[in-house]
Design a protein around this nucleic acid. Structure first.
Lengths: 229, 229
DNA sequence: CAAAAAAGTTGACACGGGCAACATTCAATT
DNA sequence: AATTGAATGTTGCCCGTGTCAACTTTTTTG
């Protein structure tokens, strides 16, 4: 139907903002199919444009996916920022970020996998700048919360504290990244419990397994029978 | 050269164990190219067989990759088992497993990504049985170490302790999984430090960030300048 | 206003996934 | 030992995709 209108409406030779349109289409298809195995041609079709038009905006599929990934990082950073707004204590803010991070990942697994998967780091290609910058922004959020005292005491973001902060971020990020992916891949579930799970794991991370093992909701591991409860 | 020999040696119509040969070829190509984007036809070529022969052993590419993934799990489980052999204390054994896990992942990123990536969980397909079983074996290793007392006190693997053990495994696995992938994807580095890093993160996990932030080696985050040291 | 650059179009090619039909070998069963 | 059905391999084909090349239509710019 829209097709017909377009053909009579003699849509202009130039699309207006095809770059944006292609990225949007990619995000759509990615959400719908949860796979990066769509074709550029499919995106072109959706944008109502010839099968080669996208190549005027992206050198190859990789570059398009990089742009999509960058959007993903911006989205996630925004969700994390928003999530912290309603909290005052640094500790609560960090927890909120953890939750937002995990929810963001679970709510669009394919996008999260694209962002962190090897598609873009592979080969000899360098990670595209736009994507790196977006990733940096995310890290800055963590640094802020930690230096504000999320770990129990303030750790000013100075050169002297760099190693310590790096260590904390590494632990935190690994933990959240790992949990997100286990959920996303269905290795552990059910992901409806992700909020409780992230809370538990977050607690466990702060207090240490040797001190107190976090009480987690009943989980199912892939291949195991559902929890009998 | 080998090609020529084959043609004169009138190799038998049946290959002998093509299934195995294809999986091996896949593992080779995967290691070489660090990508799952090879073609079945390429594997067929390597096995010296017609382009459609593999389809007698694998319904489609997915199924082949699942078999490769399963081998990956078995390999990893073996490395973890071996790594624990030289240690007596459960705590050291768990640490050794963590190290082996991370090394295993970093040493063949594409394989690790295949094992845990969404390629196999996506769509409506169910995770292949052989792969699930291999994954279960790995989890059993963790359960053993934990119930033996790796976390400071023994936690018998009883129904009553299920929740606690599940919680511990979830934290541990997420942490290691996440760290492995950050290293594998080059988000944090350099991965030559992976042993020290895994040790630090492991310590941090046991003691808790709120108590003591682990001292980690100087790391580089993607996009950041190399550490000035 | 001409000329170059940008954005889109059409056509072509090679390659890969996967179906179908056929060939060869192996393994049971009689 | 002969027959026959199941495994295993092979050849040929179709279709969709990535991507290069050459051409057209706008837009921008000197």
């Amino acid at each position: 139907m829209t097709e017909d209108n377009y053909s009579t409406e003699q849509r202009p030779y130039h699309h207006g903002d095809l770059h944006q349109a292609i990225v949007s289409a990619a995000l759509e298809v990615l959400s719908e199919t949860q796979s990066t195995e769509f074709s550029l041609r499919e995106l072109a079709r959706r944008a109502g444009v010839s099968h080669n038009a996208p190549y005027k905006h992206f050198a190859d599929k990789r570059e398009l996916l990089a742009a999509v990934s960058a959007v993903g990082f911006e989205l996630l950073a925004k969700q994390m920022t928003d999530a912290t707004k309603e909290f005052d204590s640094p500790r609560e803010r960090l927890g909120a970020m953890a939750r937002a991070y995990i929810c963001g990942g679970v709510n669009n697994p394919a996008l999260y996998r694209l962002m962190f998967g090897g598609y873009l780091s592979g080969h000899d290609h360098v990670r595209p700048a736009v994507e790196i910058i977006a990733g940096e922004k995310m890290k800055a959020l963590l640094v802020d919360a930690i230096s504000d005292g999320a770990l129990g005491r303030p750790i000013p973001n100075t050169a002297a504290n760099k190693r310590e902060i790096d260590g904390a971020i590494l632990v935190f990020w690994s933990q959240m990244h790992g949990l997100t992916l286990l959920l996303v891949d269905g290795r552990v579930g059910p992901s409806e419990n992700m909020v409780e799970l992230s809370e538990s794991v977050f607690q466990g991370m702060l207090e240490g397994l040797a001190k107190r093992i976090p009480a987690i909701p009943a989980v199912t591991w892939i291949g195991s029978p559902a929890p009998t409860e």
